[in-house]
Amino acid sequence: MSAALDTQGHIASAARTDAPPAIVLDKVNKWFGALHVLRDVDLQVALGERVVVCGPSGSGKSTMIRCINRLETHQEGKILVDGIELSDDLRSLDAIRREVGMVFQSFNLFPHLTILENCTLAPIWVRKMPKKDAEELAMEYLTRVRIPEQAKKYPGQLSGGQQQRVAIARALCMKPKIMLFDEPTSALDPEMIKEVLDTMVMLAGTGMTMIVVTHEMGFARQVADRVVFMDRGEVVEVGTPEQVFNDPKTDRLKMFLSQILRGH
């Protein structure tokens, strides 16, 4: 909330270039069967940096961030999260999933648990936190996303926007160092998009490392330190929001931007 805004209303970067990078993707390749969906993807995200990933559908952007917490396994190249390399080693997997929170397009709240139980589940079972502490923590985050009064309800009783804010709170309850957002507003009705984006802007203000797959250009301009444009499994352009949106270098990006602008 108290984030320092620079002249264009952009939240000041909290990226710490002095610290080792939070995420490193080094020549990452992935196939679905014979289909080559990620091609030599290189990307470094600094601690506290906010990266927005955009690109046409099927460009591999969701696959890329799903590789970061290993919901998908990459087959070539290296991924380092918080200095730990992703491998078949289950210990490294456990460590990484504790540090990385994820918000899905379709919320994926657990419908048989209350909002509070959704939020306390992982702290209790993964972080081995006492139930009382976990509930306090959950209420703290639910207050931050401004829905503490819904704690005893079930997900089915909430609107889409509220559900997505719960999903953000649920991820935050694990006190992650990195947050991944996979098209968090795509499944929402237009009037609910703003409340979710506001929550994400608020989160950005706290200095959280974030990777966000989204088409919300306004959000990207306001929050992103860097924008990554992907197409056909490749990172095509990387730059500040101004560079990418105002001065596209490649035809692919130009075409994408014209389609996006026409669409809005």
Binding site: N29, K30, W31, A34, L35, H36, R39, Q75, E76, D88, R232
Partner: peptide, 11 residues
């Protein structure tokens, strides 16, 4: 794309 034919490696 010729690289489409590239096969995923075994771990």
């Amino acid at each position: 794309d010729p690289r489409f034919r590239r096969k995923p490696p075994k771990r």
